[in-house]
C-alpha cells in the first residue's frame, strides 16, 4: 500500500460521506443521479464477490463492506425514504443506464483475465465503474446549477480516480512485473470522463463563484 492508493481510497470514502451528508442534512437528493448510485451498488456487489474467497487484509475486507453497505444505503434512501424520495426528479435522470450494464457485461465476457465466474464479474465491475458516473454528469449538465455538496461529491470521486493512476505509476516503477491492463486502461478512461467537470470546477473555484456547467 502506497500513499497514493491510501489517499485515493480516502477520497473515495470522503466522496461517499459527502453524499450521505448531503442527503441526511437536506433530506433531499436533488441533483443526485439515482442511476449512477445504482450502478455503483452493482459495481461493488459484482467486484467484491471475492469477499469470502480471497483475504487480502483487514483493511481491504473492512473497506469492501463499507463500500457495499454505503452504496446500498444511498440507493435505499433515494428509492424508499419518504422525504428523500420526493425530491428525486426522474425527468432529469433519463440516462439509459441498463445499456451500460449490458455493454459492460458483454465486454467482460470477451475481455477478462480468466474465464471464471469471479473473474468475469470482476472485469464487468471494472468496466461498469468506468462509465457509471455518466448518468450523474449528464444530470448535472442538464440541470446547469450544481449545489456545493453535489459538486464536492463529484470532485472527490474524480480525485480518487486521479490518485489511483498515480498509484499505478508508483507500483509500475517499484514492483517487478506490475501489469494490469484491464484495470489501468479502464481507470484512465474513467478519469478522462471527469476532465470536463474538473475544468469548470476549477474555474468556479478560481473565480470564487458557484459551479455552473454549460448547457
Amino acid at each position: 500500500m502506497n500513499i497514493f492508493r491510501l489517499a485515493g481510497d480516502m477520497t473515495h470514502l470522503l466522496s461517499i460521506l459527502v453524499l450521505l451528508l448531503k442527503i441526511y442534512a437536506t433530506k433531499s437528493c436533488s441533483g443526485v443521479s439515482r442511476k449512477t448510485q445504482e450502478l455503483y451498488a452493482i459495481v461493488f456487489l459484482a467486484r467484491y464477490l471475492d469477499l469470502f474467497t480471497d483475504f487480502i487484509s483487514v483493511y481491504n475486507t473492512f473497506m469492501k463492506i463499507v463500500f457495499i453497505a454505503s452504496s446500498l444505503a444511498i440507493v435505499w434512501c433515494i428509492r424508499v425514504h419518504p422525504m428523500v424520495k420526493r425530491s428525486y426528479d426522474k425527468d432529469l435522470d433519463t440516462f439509459r443506464h441498463y445499456l451500460l450494464v449490458a455493454a459492460s457485461f458483454l465486454l467482460a465476457l470477451f475481455l477478462h483475465e480468466k474465464f471464471t465466474f469471479l473473474e468475469i464479474f470482476w472485469a464487468f465491475s471494472i468496466y461498469l465503474e468506468a462509465v457509471a458516473i455518466l448518468p450523474q454528469l449528464v444530470l448535472l449538465q442538464r440541470s446547469g446549477n450544481v449545489d456545493n455538496l453535489t459538486g464536492q461529491y463529484v470532485f472527490f470521486l474524480g480525485a480518487y480516480r486521479g490518485l489511483y493512476i498515480l498509484n499505478w505509476i508508483y507500483r509500475y516503477l517499484t514492483e517487478p512485473r506490475f501489469t494490469r491492463w484491464i484495470a489501468c486502461v479502464s481507470g484512465v478512461v474513467q478519469t478522462a470522463l471527469y476532465a470536463d467537470f474538473f475544468y469548470y470546477y476549477f474555474i468556479s473555484w478560481k473565480n470564487n463563484s458557484k459551479l455552473k456547467l454549460p448547457a
Binding site: 481510497d9 467486484r47 471475492d50 498509484n167
Partner: peptide, 10 residues
C-alpha cells in the same frame, strides 16, 4: 511458476 493473480485493490 504461474502466480495466482489476486485483486488487491478496491
Amino acid at each position: 511458476v504461474v502466480e495466482r493473480k489476486i485483486h488487491d485493490e478496491l
